[in-house]
């Protein structure tokens, strides 16, 4: 078991979540290595980390209570640079084949004492764990965006996980200021298995003429106490990611339970992916009003 007191965390994938994770880790004083094979993604991540730093300062998320002074994330294009990490958090795209390949390559460079976390919306963890030579150290860790201002992590335990690995992950999450709930491994886990049904049905009822996006989201906030409604949440997640997640759930549970609605498919085909493209269920362009 790894008993080092100085923790180094590797983050694989410098997209929205990877950058948010790298920011939150460094803001907590944790040594962080951010890896991506795309130099442009690493450049963009630096901007996202700077923006996340402003947010944390504004909301006090980087305030007192952190274990050490803020660090600077080290950026690299090589997975081999993660060899010294105690924990590696993988955040590549929601494609099981891509994730499997990354985990096999990670497994080859990490020492047996390192823990590997899979940050995924829905991909089953066991399949990825069993594709490596060390399934005992592969655990699901579903972080919420933005990471710095979200206190809870959905941790996913497979039947193959060693207790030392789970303990080590929870210990590092504690250093990171996160609470966690440990659940069993089934596609979508708890959050996305439920949330994706809400989003998919909310999108479908727009086509049925039942309500507007604003009405749907106001009802979820006002009646159920959700912080944001399902359609605005979908805009934040990205509708392309929502469709990919629904595809994974359909493959696991069958098309009668999870098939992306026509509305979602049309919007993704039209490039309306939510906030990141300026248009989703709502408009985020410079002079746009809510859709």
């Amino acid at each position: 078991m790894n008993t080092t007191t100085t923790t180094t965390v590797g983050v694989v994938g410098a997209g929205v979540m990877g950058a948010s994770l790298a920011h939150a880790l460094t803001a907590r004083g944790i040594d962080t290595v951010l890896q991506d094979t795309d130099p442009a993604a690493l450049d963009e991540a630096m901007h996202r980390i700077a923006a996340a730093g402003r947010l944390a300062r504004l909301t006090g998320a980087a305030g007192p209570g952190r274990p050490g002074p803020a660090r600077q994330a080290r950026l690299t294009g090589e997975l081999t640079e993660l060899a010294g990490c105690d924990l590696v958090i993988e955040n590549v795209t929601e494609d099981p084949a891509v994730k499997r390949s990354v985990h096999q390559r990670l497994d080859a460079v990490l020492p047996a004492t390192a823990v590997v976390a899979v940050n995924t919306s829905a991909v089953p963890i066991s399949d990825l764990a069993l594709a490596t030579g060390h399934p005992e150290r592969v655990i699901g860790a579903h972080f919420m965006n933005p990471v710095a201002t979200s206190t809870m992590v959905e941790v996913v335990r497979t039947p193959y996980v060693a207790q030392w690995a789970l303990d080590r992950l929870l210990e590092i999450l504690g250093q990171f200021g996160k609470e966690s709930v440990v659940v069993a491994d089934a596609a979508g886990f708890v959050i996305n298995r439920c949330l994706m049904i809400f989003i998919n049905e909310a999108a479908a009822l727009l086509d049925d003429g039942v309500a507007t996006p604003q009405q749907v989201d106001r009802l979820f906030r006002g009646c159920l106490g959700h912080r944001t409604g399902p359609l605005r949440t979908a805009d934040i997640i990205g509708l392309d990611t929502v469709v990919r997640t629904l595809d994974v759930l359909r493959d696991q549970y069958g098309p009668e339970r999870f098939t992306p609605s026509d509305r979602l498919l049309r919007m993704v085909a039209a490039g309306q992916h939510g906030r990141k493209t300026g248009q989703g269920f709502y408009s985020y362009t410079t002079d746009g009003a809510a859709a």
Binding site: R54, L55, L58, P146, T149, T228, R275
Partner: peptide, 9 residues
């Protein structure tokens, strides 16, 4: 939400 706050700045 916090992402809107970043975009506001």
């Amino acid at each position: 939400d916090s992402l809107a706050a970043v975009e506001l700045l």
